[in-house]
Design a protein around this nucleic acid. Structure first.
Lengths: 325, 325
DNA sequence: TTGAAAGCGCTAACAG
DNA sequence: CTGTTAGCGCTTTCAA
């Protein structure tokens, strides 16, 4: 008993495909109650589910939204995915998720797959600065929203107000009397908007804080770890506060602090993302989170009003401070 | 410039659709070099990408694998997803990910969507014990592999050897001289295989350890937290060791220990999953992980030899012990 | 109320 | 080497 089709249902019900099709589209007004019941019964029995690929061939019936994340392990990504999925996935909209794994080639493949699968909407965490990828989406009339990173192509984009987040971080740390602040970042690739913007904001904030000594440490995970070790070992200068520009940096920092038995020595750590560690380490003075619900609302808005909303939208962060709860 | 189709390409190249179709299927043997070049050029220029929905309508061309996870935040799930995706996603196989969010209704919807989208293979972390859901997959000839939980329906299933994992945990803790061991679990719903099997293994291991006093604490996250607090506050009896039956329990435990300033008081914690916290807390004596690569190999094997492999496959855990590295 | 026919984008026989 | 034709599963005119 291979795939059952509309033809089978029609034959079993003793009607034509047309009637069954009407039934499938909840168009009962021309149908006798008897016919309707009969079709309903047969569909139930056979577990018939129409193929959306066939339905969409001539007339678009089902909207498919493809969320392409760059990193399945980042909490920001999974929160966006979960929220979007929860709000949108339904009989009418199918939400499918893909993972580009921070790989430019993979991203290209996924975009091509999206097009070939006749996807209608894409929400993407871009991993390349190759405009060609994104032009493909546009050419195929796919409504697109970029998340977290400014696209090389004109389009709707949502991201954190990085400037505000870091400015506030510095202000908080200074207000608490810190004179030596270290800033941790992954490699500063030019098109990785959050990294670049956050560091810029840090440097800018520092220019007006003359009494504070800043240190910037950046590099791959391994490099970052090494540099941090060097810093912590050099007994002459150890910062009193750290800014982890994302949760990966935060974890590296916490490991290093533990290894050098610096835990409990009263540091002030501020981090962007990584809220789940907030409750576990007193050293984390403040965690900065993305306003997920708000961002998703805007994403949905942009998907539906693609022409009006070809801009960049920045969102004020949410601050979790120690003792506030 | 809406969707460009095979017809457009054929017209632009001055040939029939057939030739273009042959080109698309890498079937060049009947084609003049000139024709081939012309088609190639036009496809490049127009960024034409054929629709797999149309290709698959009559003759199956592209395989679609749908991974349905129950919890996007569990590291086991994301690791499986990433590994599977890395190994399989290609021109010939599209891997799409969905999230049932531990919701039975959602799972049903996703299964129906998979069928309607003409998915060929499903890898699912089941969330219900409703056999009907899974029969739907079978009826539609979808190759299915269940992960982590025994299905209510006969089929291929891969999961951790929970018995071995917990037996080994207890043995380790006892060998280290622990006389009071507390076991933490989320609610013991009957069809949540890992929870049930692990607790059974714990109870069984305890029957042969007469000198050890076991405590079992289970419940929802909130309940677990409360019970743990009660336990830690009652100064008369505090365990010397804990077994966290998964990473959610581990986080609750670590929070509770911190809140009561028990950190650094030399507990022995063993946990299933949650390796990322291993380096951050000395109290974690051992972390038990799933052998992801091995499991994925078996999943792929089962997908491809569906008829031979309708059994349950259990995998020996990987143990990370403090000081081993 | 219902059915026949055309067509969506694509592939594969089969003719030329 | 290339084109014609039929058909995949479904929806929608349009006619009965």
């Amino acid at each position: 008993m291979g795939q059952v089709t509309i033809k089978d249902i029609a034959e079993m019900a003793g009607v034509s495909k047309t009637i069954v099709s009407q039934y499938l589209n909840n168009n009962y007004k021309f149908m006798s109650a008897k016919t309707k019941d009969k079709i309903e019964k047969i569909i139930k029995e056979t577990n018939y589910i129409p193929k959306s690929s066939a339905r969409n061939l001539k007339f678009k019936k089902i909207t498919v939204l493809n969320i392409i994340v760059a990193n399945l392990e980042s909490s920001f990504s999974t929160q966006i995915v979960q929220q979007m999925d929860k709000r949108l996935n339904s009989e009418k909209i199918h939400v499918i998720i893909s993972n580009s794994a921070d790989d430019e080639k993979k991203e290209r493949l996924l975009i091509e797959q999206a097009i070939s699968q006749d996807v209608d909407q894409v929400v993407i965490f871009p991993v390349s600065n190759n405009p060609e990828h994104y032009q493909l989406l546009k050419r195929n009339n796919i409504a697109t929203v970029y998340v977290d990173r400014l696209p090389s192509e004109k389009g709707a984009c949502v991201l954190l107000d990085n400037q505000e987040a870091i400015t506030e971080s510095v202000a908080s740390l200074v207000a608490r009397g810190n004179k030596q602040i270290a800033y941790l970042s992954l490699p500063l690739v030019e098109y990785l908007t959050p990294r670049v913007e956050r560091l810029q904001a840090f440097n800018q904030a520092m220019t007006s804080e003359e009494s504070v000594l800043p240190t910037v440490i950046s590099g791959s995970e391994a490099t970052l770890k090494k540099r941090l070790e060097t810093l912590l070992k050099s007994k002459n200068y150890v910062p009193t506060a750290f800014i982890a520009s994302n949760d990966t940096c935060l974890k590296i920092l916490l490991r290093a602090l533990k290894e050098y038995h610096y835990h409990g020595k009263d540091f002030d750590i501020v981090t962007v993302d990584g809220l789940e560690l907030f409750d576990l380490f007193d050293d984390i003075y403040m965690t900065i989170e993305h306003p997920i619900a708000e961002i998703c609302t805007k994403i949905i808005d942009c998907l539906n009003n693609q022409t009006d909303n070809q801009q960049v939208f920045r969102f004020s962060p949410i601050y979790y401070r120690r003792g506030e709860k």
